[in-house]
Design a protein around this nucleic acid. Structure first.
Lengths: 147, 147
DNA sequence: CAGATTGTAACATTAGTGGTTACAATGCTA
DNA sequence: TAGCATTGTAACCACTAATGTTACAATCTG
């Protein structure tokens, strides 16, 4: 059980967009799919979500996708929410309908709820504190694109 | 996509064990299944994992399951690990085999790795900081079992 | 208009989950 | 020892989500 790779692919795609230069060849879903090593339809699906969330702008038919915001203004939490890998407050599945005739059964859900929420929030805060800019800077360093 | 309810069921079961009294009826997997509202086999599977992790002791055939440690000495992280809902450092699935011919493709995995690790660790630290004792105290309060 | 690109549906496959059934193994009691 | 209750585990089933593919309509530009 893992958080879908849809999230990491989305970050990959956004990084490509952030690092594209005006003089570069047009960045089509086909080219992005090549970098990610997947089918272009997969990229288009994700782009649809990112567009809906206001993170990218996509030119229909003519090709060309662009960041709708500065990489500094896009957090990994924004991406996570955009691609809907985890529903709000629903990272942990909690068993349904425990027996209310039993004190533990009656109360376990609410006894756990607060902690599980805090755990999820702690994870999401790390994502919120990380921007696309930081990721792309890291990529550039690792790829030897920075001097 | 959610972390399996196996975890919350395990906490439920451990709470039953923590709150059982010596004078109570024997706590069989059947009775625990009644509280959880599931099939006893489900409980037995989970108990097998908890036993393997050293959190419980189970009497074969004769019935009777007991905590192997004090509730203060059992964290929710122990439970999470015991029931193997998430593999070590594998909460986030990251796409395989991005294209190494592209700088982003070549570096995205390692550029993301550190952040994703931190996010997972943040979640796990909340669980580590929460003991079964705290959960059962909460249960007792909510069920009106404390005066 | 033709070609390139996007957007979306449908299909196929796989893995994991949660529940059930079946039954062997085990331990206790009469 | 036999019978019973309980545990332990395998196999099966149905469902869901994820991931990839194919097909093709809609859109835009030269």
């Amino acid at each position: 059980m893992q958080i879908s790779s849809r999230f990491s692919v989305a970050v990959h795609v956004l990084s490509l967009l952030a690092l594209q230069e005006p003089t570069d060849v047009l960045l089509t879903s086909e080219r992005m799919a090549g970098s990610v090593n997947t089918n272009p339809v997969v990229i288009r699906r994700i782009l649809g979500q990112l567009k809906k969330a206001g993170l990218v702008e996509v030119r229909p038919a003519a090709g060309g996708t662009f960041l709708a915001r500065s990489p500094v203004a896009i957090s990994l939490l924004d991406v996570y929410r955009a691609v809907e890998v985890v529903e709000e407050g629903q990272l942990f599945s909690v068993h349904d309908k425990p027996n209310p005739a039993c004190p533990v059964g009656r109360t376990i859900q609410s006894a756990l709820d607060h902690t599980l929420q805090r755990a999820q929030t702690a994870l999401e805060q790390v994502l919120a504190a990380t921007t696309l800019q930081q990721v792309t800077t890291d990529i550039q360093q690792k790829a030897g694109l920075l001097t």
